[in-house]
C-alpha cells in the first residue's frame, strides 16, 4: 500500500516509537513539581513529575493516556527537560509553543528544539496541534505553581 507523504509526516518513526515505547513512565512520589492536564474532547490525560537536583531537573516521570501525538509529545518532553534549569525549560516551552503556533524558527530555536522539531509537521493537521501541546501546557502550569509556592 502506498502511503501519502502527508500521513508519513504525521506518523513519523520517532513519534510512533515514543508512542509505543514511552520513556520515563515511572511515577515520582517525592517530586518537586507535579502537573496534570487533560483534554476531555479527546480523552487525553497526562501527568508529569519533576525532581530537581540543585537548580536543574534531575529526574522526570511521565504518564499519559490518549492519542499517539499527545503521548509521544509527553514522552519526548520528559527526555528534553532533564538536565535543564527551570528558566531553560520555560524558554524551551515557549519556543515549542511558538513552533506549534506557526512562528518562524530561528537557527537558535532550531538548535534549542532538537528532536522536538518533529512536531512541526503536525501543523498540517490543525486539529491535532492541541494534542502536541498538552504536556507542555501542563509543564508550564506546574512550574508556575512551584514558583508561587516558593
Amino acid at each position: 500500500m502506498v502511503r501519502s507523504d502527508k500521513l508519513d509526516d504525521l506518523y513519523q518513526e520517532l513519534i510512533l516509537d515514543h508512542y509505543k515505547n514511552p520513556r520515563n513512565r515511572h511515577y515520582i512520589e517525592e517530586a518537586d513539581i507535579k502537573a496534570e492536564a487533560d483534554n476531555p474532547f479527546c480523552g487525553d490525560e497526562i501527568a508529569l513529575q519533576l525532581k530537581l537536583a540543585n537548580s536543574h531537573v534531575g529526574e522526570v516521570g511521565y504518564q499519559g493516556k490518549g492519542c499517539s501525538i499527545c503521548r509521544a509529545s509527553g514522552s519526548m518532553l520528559s527526555e528534553a527537560v532533564v538536565g535543564r534549569t527551570l528558566e531553560e525549560i520555560e524558554e524551551l516551552a515557549a519556543t515549542f509553543k511558538g513552533m506549534m503556533r506557526g512562528r518562524e524558527l530561528s537557527k537558535i530555536d532550531t538548535e534549542t528544539l532538537g528532536e522536538l522539531k518533529v512536531f512541526l509537521d503536525i501543523l498540517k493537521y490543525p486539529i491535532r496541534i492541541k494534542c502536541a501541546l498538552l504536556a507542555w501546557v501542563a509543564l508550564e502550569e506546574g512550574i508556575q505553581k512551584f514558583r508561587s509556592r516558593a
Binding site: 501519502s4 502527508k6 500521513l7 504525521l10 506518523y11 476531555p40 474532547f41 479527546c42 480523552g43 487525553d44 490518549g66 492519542c67 499517539s68 501525538i69 499527545c70 493537521y125 491535532r128 494534542c131
Partner: peptide
Amino acid sequence: GIHAHDIGTILDSEGIAIRTGH
C-alpha cells in the same frame, strides 16, 4: 492500543469521514 483520533486521522487521509471522540 490505538486512540480514536489516530484512527480518524488515518481514515481521513483515505477520504473516509467518521467521527472520533466522546
